[in-house]
Design a protein around this nucleic acid. Structure first.
Lengths: 206, 206
DNA sequence: CTGTGTGAAGGCTTTCACAGCC
DNA sequence: GGCTGTGAAAGCCTTCACACAG
């Protein structure tokens, strides 16, 4: 039961289940069936049960799942994933946009610092994170033991910046630059391209 | 060869190929092999060829693909997907962040207007798109024949707002709200949750 | 010899069908 | 009866192997 035995897609859905369960607990709901939970997440009940089967048996037949108990189990599985410090590199258009976004903090991720070659790129003072020059990236990351980075630099400098991130000890990168990053095998990269999401979506308009 | 016969994932990759090809053309490169193009996109050569096979035969055996020719074909396949007007609903934290992002415009998507219940949420005047009250959404969307919407309202109001979007004729929604939207079958929804992306990523840190 | 096009094989996910337990 | 847990089946996508063209 190595953690890499669990499919990426399953892990992604665990996060979805977790959020719905939190909402249920807020509403003092103590029990939920796989059918109800699956519907809220937008998957089939059997898929939810298969996902959970990777970790053990949490339900009661004929009844469903105990909300608190399942939450605790999922929190345990996802625990390493939360409350990690994050740095953001590239405080340009999208970067500073994401700095203004409080959705990360709400979910337990704090952007502890942003880096840019131009430190004058400070938008009006709503963000708490300091914007530092790139030269400080290495030392800062190592001192604070940061492992997660959000990369929002232009594609032309993305690989060079990535090399610096890897050298500084970063282990996972949420990459918004439109290129494939070359990284050592111990570093995980997830690519996001909002323009392509939009393009892809509009393709399926009837 | 109905457009829905083409897998979502393939369409997504077509967008990736397209962007690399544009870059090659800028560099006056006229021919590219499936191996080279696939590497730039981060997929296997056979997958690239299978993707293209959905539409016909574009390559020359022993030589590769003509950059301009393949670009033209892909542009034709993706044509409906580009240069669409888009509205953004919910000019809160993430919404106004995305309004500041110029990556959409670069790829051919113009955010023609933003809507919010509070029209005073205007950040400093860098954006060109007007921020309008929600009451104008319906008329505006119909008059301008907008079919694409970016949804960045809180989860609590997302479904209600979505109903309004659907009534106004919106056919595709890029949804950042953390709930599953109920929509008629002719409406396409794509969900994006940046916090979960981050959580999922950090799960795979060794 | 190089590199595309493609049927067949393989692998991964999802779904089904139903056994088992409350 | 209601609902979970799970082996088997199905479906989908990716990869292989190789025929074929330049």
């Amino acid at each position: 039961m190595s953690k890499f035995a669990i499919p990426r897609k399953t892990v992604y859905r665990l996060s979805l289940y977790f959020r719905i369960l939190e909402r249920l607990r807020q509403n003092r709901i103590e029990t939920v069936s796989s059918a109800a939970l699956a519907k809220a997440v937008g998957v089939k009940p059997t898929q939810l049960r298969k996902d959970l089967a990777h970790f053990g048996q949490f339900g009661t037949r004929g009844l469903g799942y105990n909300v608190g108990g399942l939450l605790a189990h999922l929190a345990n599985v996802l625990r390493t994933a939360r409350f990690q410090p994050v740095i953001l590199v590239g405080a340009g258009n999208l970067g500073s946009a994401l700095l203004h976004y409080d959705g990360f903090a709400k979910e337990g991720f704090e952007i502890v610092a942003a880096f840019d070659i131009r430190i004058d790129r400070v938008r009006k003072g709503s963000e708490k994170s300091p914007i530092l020059p790139m030269e400080k990236l290495h030392t800062f990351t190592q001192k604070q033991n940061v492992k997660l980075a959000i990369l929002t630099v232009p594609g032309t400098s993305a690989q060079a910046v990535t090399n610096g991130l890897v050298a500084a000890g970063i282990q996972a990168i949420l990459n918004f630059a439109p290129i494939i990053l070359q990284v050592p095998s111990h570093v995980v990269v997830h690519n996001v391209n909002l323009a392509i999401e939009l393009e892809n979506l509009s393709y399926f308009i009837a």
